[in-house]
Design a protein around this nucleic acid. Sequence first.
DNA 1: CGATTCTTTGAAAACAGTCAATCTGTGTGG
DNA 2: CCACACAGATTGACTGTTTTCAAAGAATCG
Lengths: 192, 192
Amino acid sequence: MFETFRKYLEDKIALTDQDYELIKSVSSFKKLRKRQYLLQAGDVCRFNAFVCKGFLRYYYADEKGQEHIMQFVPENYWTGDRESMDSGLPSKYNIDAIEDSEILLLKKEDFEMIRKTIPAFNNFVNDTLRKNIVVLQERIHVSISFSAEEKYSNFILKYPSIGNRVPLHMIASYLGVSAETLSRVRSQSTKK
Amino acid sequence: MFETFRKYLEDKIALTDQDYELIKSVSSFKKLRKRQYLLQAGDVCRFNAFVCKGFLRYYYADEKGQEHIMQFVPENYWTGDRESMDSGLPSKYNIDAIEDSEILLLKKEDFEMIRKTIPAFNNFVNDTLRKNIVVLQERIHVSISFSAEEKYSNFILKYPSIGNRVPLHMIASYLGVSAETLSRVRSQSTKK
DNA sequence: CGATTCTTTGAAAACAGTCAATCTGTGTGG
DNA sequence: CCACACAGATTGACTGTTTTCAAAGAATCG
């Protein structure tokens, strides 16, 4: 499982074997079955999670039981509730597995330790944060400007692989549209 | 103008006079009149901008001429188009002044230089990025889950001072709601 | 298979957007 | 100091989009 993570890192930065040993020494691993929680609302988030294999979702469940997906997390992506991690307060979000998954976990403190010890890793994390901001901003743009139909076609264009991998009602939830509307929107657009 | 920035930094991190000298030596300043652009779509963004005084907006103008506000930027906040800055490509966004403003500008390269030279500054920037992500994420949550009315009351609750400072139609644009709808929503909610 | 999850469809209702007109307040130039 | 222009807010009538609820079909999985 660590090998996947190592390959991911090798692609981005140049680290020594010693660096990898350090990282490995503080990594822990977790297998999740489909539907299993990685983080449940009410828990404090203490980990940065890296998906080696599988597929997670990061979502909010409101009072009416409706779920609003904040993030899809396929292999080679990070997740975790930064807010809860920084504050030490319980999370309002849930993270669970959409597919059987293999997760690498780095405790907050270990993660910070790695950043301090390995400058290249620190730079890489900063870069990743910056890119993440661009992505979130783009999503806000879509969210405040686009109709349901535009949101859907934009999503399919941008994340074709996710489109094939998750049920339609989850894409609806991610886009902030009802499942019925998205079903109609999609049948419209395939007619063209 | 630099004094405002210095006070802002002193509040967050401990720097030496020498550090401040360094920062000051690469800072440039700009006064903007109301309605004046700091960045116009099509330009490449080369600066990180810090608002010392006044109020900016960061927005997208679509083909129909409609404006979608991505960010309000009051004093003591940063702005700039990260995407354009990282890629070197023209920006799709505009930044202009809602009030007469005073801006401190740090060229991309100088900003990076400061980060490399002053570790505390680097840490501070990273922290700011992290917090920014939390804020953006929260906005996405609101955007995909809330009705127009909930969006408005949430906004007023969270940013009461901005509510008094910008015209209603700009709040509407920020929330992704038409100005007319927001006007109705508001008159409803004041009746209660 | 039987159960569950997912998708589709229909009809009604709620919600939000558009267009146009009016009203308000503000500030600028004569 | 007034008149006028202008930006902003409000209102009404209408249209269009999206949600909701309910039911029925697919598809998938143990």
